[in-house]
Computed example of a mutant assay.
Amino acid sequence: MLYVGRITGRKGLAVFCKTILARILEQHPEARTLVVGDDPVNALHRGKGERAHVEAILNENGLMQTVLFLGKIDDHELSAAYFAADILVFPVQQRKNDAEGFGMVAIEAAAHDLPTVAFAAGGVTDAIADDVSGKLITAGDNKAFSEAVINLLRKPFPIRKGNDIRAFAAKFSWPRFGERLRLFCNPRF
């Protein structure tokens, strides 16, 4: 499993490690989670010590050996992490006055043929097509989130067998965006 993003309360890594990860490991004890990212430094709503909080949760629950924190990595290493993973976990939390934006990591994962399991919160619903590029789970339904991950680890994402998840990601490419923008700004063309 792969988590990519800043480590903040809204991104949900603490919730994942506290209430979801153990359920997954009961069914798949060999599963591991790679965490790419760290506490935000220059963000408007930066939190202090969220990574330490997540590590404390893992230690309290005896799960520290199942999670590897990679910190910030370069683009080549990030691409390799996407290709190496079986699932991107995106446990973003629904919060009043602190909504998740678009969810670009889900598009990046799809571009690497990697399905995403995410809570349907904020702009994430625009970045994932349910049952096409991943699974959208009702926000806050930790049990359903863990079940979706367990099922995908048990049986690879069905769409990967035939159609390409990358086709979904291609809809968000810069050339496609430029096309839509030109049509929007000048509908005569």
Rank of each mutant, 00 (worst) to 15 (best):
T138V: 04
A139W: 00
R10E: 13
I57D: 01
D74A: 14
R176P: 00
F168Q: 03
V89L: 12
A106S: 10
F145I: 00
A169K: 07
L13F: 04
S133D: 12
Q65F: 07
R32P: 05
G140H: 09
R95C: 00
A106K: 02
I107V: 15
G9R: 15
A120E: 00
A52W: 00
L2M: 11
I24L: 08
F69K: 15
F16L: 10
R160N: 02
S79G: 09
D86W: 02
G162A: 02
V89C: 11
L153M: 04
Y3A: 11
A106Q: 10
I137P: 00
N42L: 15
E30V: 02
A111H: 12
K161W: 00
F83R: 13
A109L: 06
L63N: 11
K161L: 11
W174H: 12
L70A: 14
V35C: 05
R32L: 10
A118C: 06
L183I: 10
I159N: 03
L70H: 03
A109G: 13
D75E: 08
A170V: 04
D113Y: 01
L68N: 14
P156S: 12
A148D: 06
R160W: 11
Q27F: 06
F90M: 07
T33R: 07
E50L: 09
G9M: 03
E108F: 02
R188Y: 12
